[in-house]
Simulated scan of single mutants.
Amino acid sequence: MPYEWTEPRPGGPGNAPLEECHLWPFRSLPRRGMVVFIGITCALVSIPLLAVVGSPVLWGLLPFLIIAIGGVWWAIERSYRDGTVLEVLRLWPDRVALTRHNPRGPRQEWEANPYWVDVRLHADGGPVEDYLTLKGNGREVELGAFLAPEERKALHDDLTGRIARLRAP
């Protein structure tokens, strides 16, 4: 799953959170797979060029093929950069904090008292199916919009239980 809870640290050093959850987008194509894909694409594109090797037509086609392969490379790299988003949810006995590290934007932060935090799973009306939000301190923030619907449901159940334990005396 593209989220992971760290183990609670009883009596942790200083002001360390009791629990911490890291959420990240799923990467279906690892870097090694991207290199293989680009290599296979280059090989397949070069097969038709064998017929025009030694003729001026090769020099007319070659720039367009290089631009096409460069465009595919750029698009996949851009996807990797956009996929570097990381959300960190920290739970303390007296507060819940969410930090979102955006790939091309400022870091976003949200904090609230766990007693007033409401974990909501919106079946309809959100930008994605089973939209998960945290509401508290006068704001409602999304959590894990890049997760699959089943993962958001599992995270909702897990997070609801963990926050309920924080509220218990």
Rank of each mutant, 00 (worst) to 15 (best):
W116P: 02
D130N: 15
G14M: 06
L159Q: 05
R107Y: 02
L134Y: 00
E109D: 14
L91G: 01
A16Q: 11
G39V: 07
M34W: 08
L23T: 03
L58I: 03
E20H: 03
L155W: 01
T99K: 09
I40W: 09
E129C: 01
Y131C: 05
A16P: 02
E140L: 01
R120Y: 04
A43Q: 04
L49S: 05
M1C: 12
E151V: 02
H101F: 14
R81T: 07
G33E: 07
S55V: 06
L132H: 04
E140Q: 14
L91I: 06
S55K: 08
G11C: 05
P114D: 02
V85R: 08
R120P: 00
Y131G: 01
L98F: 03
G138A: 07
W59C: 02
W74R: 12
T160C: 01
K135E: 14
I66T: 13
E77I: 08
R165S: 09
K135A: 14
M1R: 10
R32M: 13
K153R: 15
E142C: 05
R162C: 02
F146Q: 08
A43T: 13
G126P: 06
A112Q: 01
I40K: 01
T6C: 06
G105N: 08
C42F: 14
V88G: 03
P2H: 10
G136K: 02
R162N: 04
I47S: 04
Y115K: 11
S79P: 00
L23K: 01
N113V: 10
P93A: 11
G161W: 00
D118V: 05
A97T: 15
R120C: 04
C42T: 15
A148H: 12
V72L: 15
A68C: 10
P25Q: 07
L121R: 11
P106W: 10
G60S: 10
L62N: 06
A123M: 08
H156Y: 15
W59N: 06
V96I: 08
G105P: 02
F64D: 07
P2K: 09
R32L: 13
K153C: 07
D158Y: 00
A148V: 09
K135V: 08
V119E: 00
S46L: 13
A154L: 10
L23V: 13
V52G: 01
Y115T: 13
V117N: 00
H101Q: 14
L86H: 10
V45Q: 03
T99I: 12
W73I: 09
I163T: 05
E4L: 14
D157Y: 00
A154W: 00
E151D: 14
G12Q: 07
F37A: 12
N113I: 04
V52I: 15
E129H: 06
I47A: 14
R167G: 06
I76A: 09
V36Y: 11
D130T: 02
L159Y: 03
V128A: 04
A43D: 06
P63F: 02
P106H: 13
P149M: 05
P149Y: 03
S28W: 13
L166S: 07
V52L: 03
E19A: 15
G39T: 09
N137E: 11
G136A: 05
R107W: 05
S55H: 08
V141S: 02
W24P: 00
G33V: 09
T133K: 03
V53T: 13
M1P: 12
P93Q: 13
L134V: 02
E111P: 02
L166M: 10
A123K: 13
R104T: 14
I66V: 15
L134S: 01
E4N: 11
W59T: 05
